[in-house]
């Protein structure tokens, strides 16, 4: 892997997120054992995003730089939608986007991919900045972003890491436990 620092690969300032003054910012970072090009390519193919973004119920690609997002809120009871456009795209290194004018939730975001020296993997850093519409900030957070937006961003990145490293996200949903009605899996008996 190339032994370069972040700054040699991409200029880090200005963040697109800095366009919004006094926004509600979240950022998170994770490291995964795949090349930066692979994560970049997966993310840039925007239809992959619902595979690891828990609240993104669907995404529609509307142009080479534009897409339409449907975001699940209020624990799945409602959906909000917006149009997004990619405003900076540095292959293998950075994608930055902002919501288009007139969106319910105005925001900017960027994700950067930095390959670490000595086979330490690729650092994936996300920064999102929401422009709060009227009302109190707390109310906005709870209604739109869920109870723990920072934690959920981290969870999204953890799922991305599993997809990139293993190809799949491990689950225990649907496994057997006590107190459930007994059911039979015919495949367990078929080979006898």
């Amino acid at each position: 892997m190339p032994n370069k620092t972040h700054k040699e690969i991409i200029p880090t300032r200005p963040h697109i997120a800095d366009e919004i003054q006094n926004g509600i910012r979240f950022d998170s970072v994770i490291t995964m054992m795949v090349p930066a090009e692979k994560v970049y390519a997966y993310w840039r193919d925007l239809k992959n995003l619902p595979n690891f973004m828990k609240h993104l119920s669907s995404i529609e690609i509307t142009g080479s730089e534009t897409s339409h997002w449907k975001w699940s809120v209020l624990k799945g009871q409602a959906e909000i939608e917006w149009d997004s456009e990619i405003v900076r795209d540095v292959p293998g290194a950075l994608i930055a986007w902002r919501s288009k004018e007139g969106s319910t939730v105005a925001h900017t975001g960027e994700v950067s991919f930095r390959e670490l020296p000595f086979n330490r993997g690729t650092e994936v850093r996300v920064l999102v900045n929401y422009h709060p519409p009227g009302g109190s900030v707390t109310d906005f957070l709870e209604r739109i972003l869920g109870e723990s937006p920072q934690g959920e961003l981290q969870e999204d990145l953890r799922r991305l890491r599993s997809l990139m490293e293993v190809g799949e996200i491990i689950t225990v949903e649907g496994q057997s436990r006590g107190g459930m009605e007994e059911t039979f899996n015919p495949k367990l008996y078929s080979h006898h």
Partner: peptide, 23 residues
């Protein structure tokens, strides 16, 4: 299966057969 019911309480009960959840 042997299931945990609470502190110092175990039970052998009938539960669903396991199945493939990940590929």
């Amino acid at each position: 299966a042997v299931t945990w019911q609470g502190t110092r309480s175990m039970k052998v009960e009938r539960v669903p057969d396991p199945r493939i959840l990940n590929s």
